[in-house]
Structure formats: structure tokens, C-alpha cells
Nucleic acid binder design. Sequence first.
DNA 1: CAGCGTACTGCACCAAAGGACAATAGCCGG
DNA 2: CCGGCTATTGTCCTTTGGTGCAGTACGCTG
Lengths: 234, 234
Amino acid sequence: MNPAQPTVFVVDDDTSFLTAIARLLKAGGYAFQGFASATEFLAHPPGDQPGCIIVDLHMPGPSGLDLQDALAAVDHPLPLIFLTGHGDIPTSVHAIKQGAEDFLTKPVKGKILFAAIERALARDARQRAQRTRRRELLDRFDALTSREREVLGHVVRGQLNKQIAGNLDVSERTIKAHRASIMAKLQVQSVAELVRLTEKAGVLEQGAGGRQALQGEAPGHAVPGRAQDALPPR
Amino acid sequence: MNPAQPTVFVVDDDTSFLTAIARLLKAGGYAFQGFASATEFLAHPPGDQPGCIIVDLHMPGPSGLDLQDALAAVDHPLPLIFLTGHGDIPTSVHAIKQGAEDFLTKPVKGKILFAAIERALARDARQRAQRTRRRELLDRFDALTSREREVLGHVVRGQLNKQIAGNLDVSERTIKAHRASIMAKLQVQSVAELVRLTEKAGVLEQGAGGRQALQGEAPGHAVPGRAQDALPPR
DNA sequence: CAGCGTACTGCACCAAAGGACAATAGCCGG
DNA sequence: CCGGCTATTGTCCTTTGGTGCAGTACGCTG
């Protein structure tokens, strides 16, 4: 199973359906993996491979929504497509609000299903790229020592070496040393880059309570959304 | 009609329903305004007042979805709640994906409706605050001259005065003058603040094609979403 | 035309940042 | 116990950044 090949995971208690959709998906060029229940899926969670999940709503044991909750609870990033024979509007609304890629009803037209799968896979690829970028950024920050992070915090808030030195009660020369080390480790040449990097990484919200960082991709769906008005030339 | 008082706009061709919900809403403490069709609503678009819209799906003339599209096309920010007697799953999924706050079915329990309204109003308030902040930022940038914006672009990319001077083919002293002016107009004391401000405002993506800026609020719905992993202390 | 804002520039001076070279001290794993 | 990493600091020098003061030039507006 090539890890670069997206896999469609299907969770459905109807084994005959599982067989049928397996054939359909393989014919469509997708790798397929079936599960008879949400429990079974959660017991053998796919690793980091790209793909998406198609899940039935009503199943013995945990329902499709339960699976969605469980996956969200462990931050499992695979996009979810609901595919059910007995859905209702409130349920579909709830599922979509919770971030499901789609909510389809059986019987489903192959074209509709494939379109949903393509959207889900595209979304997965986007999120995957996003995570990779973020991970690379965080790795760079990991190389910083705790003291360096502390100094960084003051630097990106625009404080002068002198002020930082005063705050941390050390010599200005020491701050310069830390700064140099920070710039080297983060591979930036200017304060401007430094600030942008820390902003993008969402690191160092060292405020009291819990820390928040940027969210990878907005949890929602891509509505058409016009570009915000930018500055018109004067 | 107090502009600070949120208004619930209801678009429904059923006048008896309109009357009934008007009573219900007023009893619930909301300002109410009714419209018999999407066309009528679009002909008298509410100004900037806070509120939300409750809209029927099937109506003579433009449907609820058409209204949603029309509002999106003009960037009308009021949250939309669908309330219909004859909805189906695909439609509800579509509406939610397009950013509707909720999709309810008639008859609706008062409690459910009020809950949806409260969510919609809360969202509207959030977006409103966001827009205000953004507007304030953009206003500051509007004070910059075109030349200053040009210099700003180079500054936030971390270029030295000397380099900027070379690029724009002017004296370094001139750049210093522009910088000083920029800092003053944007009311910042350091390059760090400057960078953060421009990032936040999403200004100056002066690249060739269309420009993109930050989106006010993510178009989607607030899924629980755990905070991203921040840097653990070393 | 006078006044105003904008762009541009020179000179001088001071403050801040950054690099080079060097050194002391504590902590930790092998 | 030694080597390596980290934190700390010093001195000296160079490069940058920021500001005050001053002056020229251009275009727009009353």
C-alpha cells in the first residue's frame, strides 16, 4: 500500500455494501480499507497516510457521529463523509457543522460520491501540507533554549536590548548574544522575518492561562467569500 | 428602533406564519422585521444594524438559497437561519456549507429557535467586532501615502534602509524620512509592532494577481477544536 | 500667486544593533 | 573527571537606525 496513494476508509456494518463499495472504489482508482464498525476502525486507526473516511450513520455500537466525536477528540485529521440510508436534517446539519466534508444518502450516485471523495482528499492534502509547514516551523523553535525563547518574546514585542536586559536583569551584552543565537537557529536575517515567523508559528503566547495558537485550516467549509477590501492606491 | 438592539429579520411568504413568529419574537425580547419575499428583503436591505435573518426555503420568486447567494454576493454579513417545512438533506447540507448558522424545520420548538437565534446573534456580534477592528486598522493604513506604502513593503520584508534606497533609487536619508512618517502614522514604536500590524491588517499583498487578505471570521462553524500544540518548555 | 503637502536630500550626532575575540561558571552525560 | 552546551559578561569597532535642522522641487488648491 503506497503511502502516497490516498486511501478511502469505509466504516459500515453492512458487509455486502462494504463489498460493493470496495469494488466501486477500486475501479475508481482508490485504495480501499473497510471496517465493520466504528469500534473496529478506532482499534486500527490508520497512521498518517492521506485519505478520507466514509462512514455510515447507524451501526451497532458507536454511531457515525460518535466516531466523528472520537476522531475529533484525538485530533484525527482525516476528512469524514457521512453516507447513510436513514439520515435526517438535524443530524446532517450537526455533522456538517462539526466539520464533516459531506453528508450523503444511500443509494448514492457514483458521480456524487466520487465528487465528495475528491473534495475530501483535496481538503486532506491541504491540511496535510499545512501541518507539514507548521511542523517545520515548530521544529525550528524547538531548537531554541528556554532562555532564548524568553528573550525572543521580548524582541518580537519590540523591546530594545537595553530594556530586555533590564527586565531579565542581565547585561545588554547577554541579550545580544541570545539574539544572535536566535536569529541563527531560526534562520532569519532581520527582526521583521523573526516577527513574521513567530506570528506564523503561533508560538510564545506565554500568557497566564491556556495558550492558543493558529488553527491549521479553518474548521469550516470554503464558502465563495470575496477577498477583503485591500488598500486602494491613493 | 434602537440600533444597538439586535433585530431578527424574517423572510417568509406565509403571512400568518410571519404574524405568529412576530409575536413570538417580540415576546422573546427581540426586535422584529418581516418580509414576504426575498426580493422584498433585498429591496430594503437593513443597514449596519446587528441582528440575524430567518428565511424560508421555498417561496414565490427567489428561494432561501437564492437569498443566501445574493447576500453573499454583496458581502452582507448577517447570519442566516433557514426555517422551512419542506427541506431535504442535500439542501440543508448545502446551506450549512455555505455558512448558514442553522437549518431548522417547521414546526420548530421555541426553545430550538431561540437557541439558534442566540447563536446567530452571538456570531454577528463577533463578526461585527472583528470588522470594526479591521476597519480601524485599515483606516490607519489609509493615512499612508503611496510612496510610504511602498517603503513599508520593503521594511516589513526586513530590508535595510540602504537596500530600500537602492531599490527605489533614492537616498538613504529619504527612506529614513519615510520610515519615520510611517511609524508616526501607524502609531507604532518598533519594527516588530509594524510587522505585526501589517500582518494583522493583511495589507500590502501587492503581488501581481488578485490580492488576498485575512478573512474576518472563518466562514465555517466553531467546532470544538483543541488548541494546537505550542512549544513545551524545554 | 501663496500656501500646503509630498518627495527628496545633505550634514551632523547619538543611540542601538551586531560581529569579533575572549573569558568565567554551572550542569550533565559518558 | 572531562568535554560540550548554556548562560553570562567584557571590550572594541562597525554598521544601522533615528532625529534635528535645513533646503529644493513639484503639483494642487483657494
